[in-house]
Design a protein around this nucleic acid. Structure first.
Lengths: 300, 300
DNA sequence: CCGGATATACTCACTTCGAGTATAAAAGGA
DNA sequence: TCCTTTTATACTCGAAGTGAGTATATCCGG
């Protein structure tokens, strides 16, 4: 069986949460995701990326999973024979281990996707977007109905509810409708900060994946410091989902799953009544991480 | 940014269900999964694979999704510079469109994973496997506890319940314990039919992904003929999951989701009372395919 | 016309889950 | 000191979902 030659690169969506702001590691002042060649000599892709991140950033990398492999024709490396295959990964970095977070190199998710943050209600920018999308829908009568259904579903219009998992579909619709500069839209009429090539699409893929995952796997804890309060944990989940949650239900679900345990200490840095500190029960839960563990993503 | 050179190949896990037997398309008399070079000139990986499958098999390919990209050191192409990157896909083929199903080229899933079929109760082979695993657990005192937890969880022992989604973890445990020929185990002491290189592991990845997916996305319908009875649908799901389901609950969940509609006809080929025929509501559901749609995988 | 087989329909108890309400313990200013 | 604000923690209730069992309908073949 013959084998085609290609160039291989790794692209990483590395996220951390500082306070209540989800961030992504970037290069070129926030214009691109970190990427690099897939070097020979690595044991595996996963190991290669781990090593590379450690060298480049000094941050130990907790959770790491493959996102998607792209090889579209428009990704062909300029002057080279063969084409480029981009293998993208999603990685989670602990806040405390990310001293660079906040400084250049880390940028908030919602700079790139301002319409995705619904923690203070649906953002005003949404009305502008859906308005422009209506124009796009009307512009081609033959596909009108189909487009209308897609938009209503993705943006929670006409009876549908906003679903935080559909971030990628929303970005792709906006791309199709020419509302982002990556699709050739003039900056003045586009939405959100754009990125190099298809990096923003890859970021959207990572965000969508993470938002879906926190609902059934205890990956949030990869973003938390060693000990934390329940409110901190909730704010982290809220930051990722771009939604606010019902506090009593959040707490109920967390402790009925026995994912965490009290450290015995408390902190009064939170303003009001001191909060108990908790830690994640690593050892006991290695396996369970593979199955259960839901988070209550009910709208508030 | 420099780009590493590599060989790229595509590997496909193409599945169909005939009657109540889930099958996978194979080459080399069932010893390998179909694979081929990633040719230049394809619009994308997805398009390349679609084209390639159509040419090779004559089967139109319905659902297609990327599974995983492998590039471990032991997958290096023999005499070549660079290494091989294998991009694997999961594809679903309709029974009626797979005239070759049953003939050479298609093999039942459970030839390769006999311990995964629990439709007639836990298979006898399971006792042999867990017995051998106990030996492996005991063989290294330092990791005993950890191994015990992994095995109990994956195989549903010691209070845990059998989880059909964990097929990949089960295979990997068996590989680690040296119970499969791919890991160097002599054929007489190994379990299930083996495959070339890591193809059986890729098949396990595909099966696990599909078993997980049918629970929240309506992908089963990609495997059904145009019109079908509810029992047929249930038997297909059962074949994939390797479990039997509670009939009344299955029907309730199906029709409360409004995924299907009656064709108006009925068939009396089933032996007893004639069964109504249904069809999947394609058009209405393009978008919903992205979110909801659960299947009742409750044990019976 | 009756039993076997399959299809279809209904019921009930238990759990889950969204949503609201109540109490506890700190800080800080009047 | 006390009262308000703020945050943490605890409890309750009703609606919906889910597992499991039972009952009825309609064919076939003897």
């Amino acid at each position: 069986m013959a084998i085609g030659l290609a160039h291989a690169e790794l692209i990483a969506v590395l996220s951390a949460v500082t306070g209540d702001e989800p961030r992504v590691m970037t290069v070129r002042s926030g214009d691109a995701l970190p990427s690099g060649p897939f070097e020979l000599g690595h044991r595996s892709l996963q190991a290669g990326l781990r090593e590379w991140v450690r060298d480049q950033t000094g941050h130990p990398l907790g959770y790491l999973e493959q996102l998607y492999t792209f090889a579209d024709r428009d990704r062909t490396h300029e002057d080279a024979e063969g084409r480029t295959i981009s293998i993208s990964y999603l990685g989670l970095v602990r806040e405390q281990a990310a001293p660079g977070a906040g400084k250049p190199g880390w940028h908030g998710w919602y700079e790139y996707f301002p319409w995705e943050d619904h923690r203070r209600g649906g953002p005003d920018i949404l009305a502008d977007i859906t308005g422009r999308l209506e124009g796009w829908i009307a512009s081609e009568p033959a596909r009108r109905e189909h487009r209308q259904r897609r938009v209503d579903f993705a943006f929670g219009l006409d009876g549908a509810v906003w679903n935080e998992d559909l971030g990628l579909q929303r970005y792709e619709l906006m791309y199709e409708a020419g509302l982002v500069t990556e699709a050739g839209c003039p900056p003045a009429k586009s939405f959100g900060r754009s990125m190099f090539a298809d990096h923003r699409r890859i970021l959207a893929t990572g965000i969508a994946r993470l938002r879906a995952k926190i609902k059934y796997r205890p990956v949030v804890f990869e973003l938390m410091p060693e000990s934390f309060t329940l409110s901190q944990l909730q704010r982290t989940v809220e930051a990722l989902a771009g939604l606010t949650l019902h506090k009593p239900n959040f707490r109920r679900l967390i402790d009925q799953q026995e994912l965490i345990e009290e450290t015995g200490e408390a902190t009064s840095e939170t303003g009001g009544r001191p909060a108990k500190l908790f830690r994640y029960r690593h050892a006991v839960l290695e396996e369970r991480a593979l199955s259960g563990s839901k988070l209550p993503l009910s709208r508030n």
